[in-house]
Design a protein around this nucleic acid. Structure first.
Length: 334
DNA sequence: TTCATACCTCTATT
DNA sequence: AAATAGAGGTATG
C-alpha cells in the first residue's frame, strides 16, 4: 500500500504531542517504525511524518465508495476516496490553521509559553467528533489516561461497528449515541468496570437522543461558547471541566479552557499566587483561571493552554511512569 | 451562592 | 502482604 502525503512544514505538526497529549484516546504509537494507528470517522488510519509533510494510509473504512469488478471504475473510486480521506484528515488536524504564527503570538504574550513552545512545537488541537469526544471525557473524570483508553476501547468493541482487521487486531468505530442510550447499558458498563460513570454514559446518551442526537451537536457549534457550555452541563455527568473539553475539542469553541488539577497547579504556580494551596477548585476559581488565560492568549486560548498542558504532562511523565505502553490487564477472576 | 464530600475502580506507594 | 492515597471531576446536600 502506498502513502498519501499532505504537505506541511515539520514545525506545524508534532504527532506525539497531538495524539498522545490526552485529547484523544484512540491512537497507538509503534515506536519501532514511528508510525501511528488510530480510528476516527469510521476509518482506521496509519500516520507517519516526514520533513515536509504528514503521510497517511487508510487501513480500512466504512466510508469507502466500493467498486465492483470494472477496473476503470475502480480507479475513479480510488481517486474519489483519496479526495475524501485527505479532506477528512485535513479537517481533523485543522491544517488550515497556521500554527507557527499562533505560537509566535502566544510566545510574545507569555514567557512560560515561549519556553514550553520551543520543545513542544506543533501541538495541534484536533477537530474531533462530538459523540466520541463527549463519552470519552465522561470516562476521564477521576481517572488516568491508560484506564480511559481501555474504557473507550470497551465502548467501541461492545457497541461500535467492526471496521476491519489488520495484523491480528480488529478495529471498531466509536458507537452511535443511539447504541448507548438503552437502559441495559448501565448494568453492562458497570460489569465492565466503568463504575459510577456507567450511569452517566447511559443517561447522557438518553438525553442527547431525546434532544436530537447528531443534530443537537450542530446547534451547539453554532451557539456562542458560553451558551454551548451551559447546554452541555445539563447532561448527567458533565460538569464545567468536561463541558469545556467538548467545546474546545469537538465544537470549535477554541476559547474554551478546561481547568483540571494540572491547569490549576500551573496557574497558581506561575500567574495567580493567591490561589495557591487551595483544597479544590471552586467555580469562582475556575472562572478566574480561565479568564486569566483568555486575556493572555486571546480567542484561541484553549489551544494555547493545551500546549502548556502537554509540557506539564511530559514533565510529569519523566518523573512518573505514565508513558509506558498499556500492558494487557490481568483480569481478576472470582 | 459557595463549599466539602462520597463516589467506582485501578494502580502505585507504603 | 495488606492498606491507603490519588487519579486530567461531578452530583449532592
Amino acid at each position: 500500500m502506498s502513502w498519501t502525503k499532505l504537505l506541511c512544514s515539520h514545525r506545524e505538526v508534532q504527532l506525539i504531542g497531538t495524539l498522545n497529549g490526552g485529547q484523544t484516546f484512540r491512537w497507538t504509537h509503534n515506536k519501532d517504525n514511528d508510525e501511528w494507528i488510530g480510528i476516527f470517522s469510521k476509518t482506521v488510519w496509519k500516520l507517519r511524518q516526514s520533513n515536509d509533510g504528514l503521510q497517511y494510509q487508510v487501513i480500512g473504512s466504512l466510508l469507502s465508495k466500493s467498486n465492483k469488478n470494472n477496473s476503470k471504475k475502480a480507479t475513479v473510486a480510488k481517486d474519489v476516496n483519496t479526495e475524501l480521506f485527505t479532506s477528512l484528515l485535513e479537517k481533523y488536524f485543522r491544517l488550515d490553521v497556521d500554527l507557527v504564527r499562533y505560537y509566535k503570538e502566544w510566545s510574545e504574550a507569555d514567557e512560560l509559553f515561549k519556553s514550553a513552545g520551543q520543545q513542544f512545537y506543533g501541538v495541534r488541537m484536533l477537530a474531533q467528533e462530538p459523540v466520541e469526544n463527549l463519552f470519552s471525557f465522561i470516562c476521564s473524570q477521576n481517572n488516568h489516561i491508560s484506564r480511559i483508553s481501555s474504557m473507550v476501547e470497551k465502548l467501541c468493541t461492545q457497541y461500535g461497528e467492526e471496521i476491519c482487521s489488520h495484523e491480528g487486531t480488529t478495529y471498531f468505530s466509536f458507537p452511535e449515541v443511539q447504541k448507548l442510550c438503552e437502559p441495559k447499558v448501565e448494568a453492562q458498563l458497570r460489569k465492565l468496570g466503568f463504575g459510577y460513570r456507567a450511569k452517566f454514559i447511559q443517561k447522557s446518551a438518553e438525553q442527547i437522543v431525546e434532544w436530537g442526537g447528531e443534530d443537537w451537536f450542530r446547534t451547539l457549534q453554532d451557539m456562542k461558547y458560553k451558551d454551548a457550555k451551559e447546554e452541555l452541563m445539563k447532561l448527567h455527568g458533565i460538569g464545567p471541566k468536561v463541558a469545556d473539553c467538548i467545546c474546545l475539542m469537538s465544537l470549535n469553541h477554541l476559547e474554551a479552557l478546561p481547568v483540571d488539577t494540572h491547569v490549576y497547579q500551573i496557574a497558581a504556580q506561575n500567574y495567580l499566587p493567591h490561589l495557591r494551596g487551595k483544597k479544590n477548585v471552586t467555580d469562582k476559581m475556575y472562572m478566574e483561571i480561565g479568564d486569566h488565560f483568555r486575556k493572555l492568549y486571546g480567542d484561541m486560548a484553549g489551544w494555547a493552554h493545551t500546549v502548556l498542558f502537554c509540557a506539564d504532562l511530559k514533565k510529569f511523565q519523566q518523573n512518573g511512569k505514565e508513558d509506558e505502553s498499556v500492558k494487557p490487564k490481568r483480569r481478576r477472576i472470582k
